[in-house]
Simulated scan of single mutants.
Amino acid sequence: MKRIYVNEKWCLGCHLCEYNCAFANSGEEDMVKALKGKPLFPRIHIEEDDKISFAVSCRHCEDPICVRSCISGALIKKDGAVRIDREKCVGCLTCVLVCPYGAVTAGEDGAALKCELCLNNTRGEPACVQGCPNNAIVFEERQGEA
């Protein structure tokens, strides 16, 4: 299965992946209308320290602890991707607490929010990959990974 991978050596820390993600998941046709003057709720986040920047997003684990921990059954693994049924999410955010990668956050409405590989909103690559100016984020299948 294809997944998102990040090469921190190439990450500029520009946050364009976050903007592209938030826009792609906004349901709007115009980026300015979707994002200007509004809080962003991207499903990928840039972490930075003194020497490196890197994007954090869901790794769609083989045996995801977030799915096993979800009390409402809102998190499921379908076709290799961990997905959220936002109608079922009760906002307990147990998934946020148990994710070892920090890839699940609370959304604007209090429900869990995480990368779903843009399966519902783009053609081809996820928006963060398309919007990365330095190709630090890639969407590919790697040998030896399930």
Score class of each variant (00 low, 15 high):
80 G>E: 15
74 A>H: 03
112 A>Y: 06
94 T>A: 09
64 P>G: 09
58 C>S: 08
82 V>L: 10
81 A>Q: 05
45 H>N: 10
101 Y>S: 09
50 D>Q: 02
107 G>V: 15
104 V>A: 01
80 G>Y: 13
74 A>T: 07
50 D>V: 07
55 A>R: 00
72 S>T: 12
52 I>D: 00
82 V>G: 07
37 G>M: 06
50 D>P: 00
113 L>A: 02
114 K>E: 11
94 T>N: 06
58 C>D: 02
114 K>C: 07
56 V>W: 10
54 F>V: 07
109 D>I: 13
68 R>T: 10
110 G>H: 09
40 L>A: 12
38 K>V: 11
86 R>T: 06
59 R>S: 12
92 C>H: 06
83 R>Y: 11
52 I>P: 00
81 A>M: 11
63 D>M: 10
39 P>I: 14
110 G>Y: 13
80 G>C: 11
60 H>E: 14
65 I>R: 08
68 R>F: 03
83 R>T: 15
75 L>Y: 11
53 S>F: 15
38 K>E: 07
118 C>I: 12
40 L>P: 09
49 D>S: 03
41 F>T: 11
116 E>N: 04
88 K>D: 02
89 C>A: 12
88 K>S: 03
50 D>H: 01
96 V>S: 00
69 S>V: 11
64 P>A: 10
39 P>Y: 12
98 V>E: 02
88 K>W: 09
56 V>K: 05
44 I>F: 06
68 R>K: 13
80 G>W: 11
75 L>A: 05
74 A>V: 07
42 P>N: 04
91 G>A: 06
69 S>M: 08
60 H>S: 13
49 D>C: 01
88 K>Q: 05
41 F>M: 03
38 K>C: 05
73 G>S: 03
67 V>I: 12
76 I>Y: 01
108 E>F: 07
117 L>M: 13
107 G>C: 10
72 S>A: 13
116 E>I: 14
111 A>H: 06
116 E>L: 03
47 E>P: 00
46 I>Y: 06
54 F>C: 05
65 I>M: 05
45 H>Y: 13
118 C>R: 06
79 D>G: 03
99 C>F: 04
97 L>G: 09
87 E>L: 04
113 L>D: 04
99 C>A: 09
61 C>W: 04
104 V>D: 00
75 L>S: 06
96 V>Q: 00
41 F>C: 02
108 E>C: 04
109 D>L: 10
66 C>H: 07
113 L>Q: 03
66 C>D: 04
74 A>C: 02
55 A>L: 13
59 R>A: 14
88 K>L: 15
49 D>Y: 04
66 C>K: 08
99 C>G: 04
54 F>E: 10
67 V>F: 08
77 K>L: 13
48 E>N: 13
87 E>R: 00
52 I>T: 13
81 A>S: 08
109 D>Y: 09
85 D>C: 02
99 C>H: 07
43 R>Q: 14
43 R>H: 14
65 I>V: 15
54 F>A: 08
73 G>N: 02
68 R>W: 03
62 E>A: 07
38 K>N: 05
90 V>F: 01
99 C>Q: 09
97 L>I: 02
54 F>P: 01
40 L>F: 14
73 G>W: 09
104 V>Y: 04
67 V>S: 03
118 C>K: 05
93 L>F: 02
92 C>Y: 04
70 C>F: 12
118 C>E: 08
48 E>Q: 14
86 R>L: 00
114 K>S: 08
62 E>V: 11
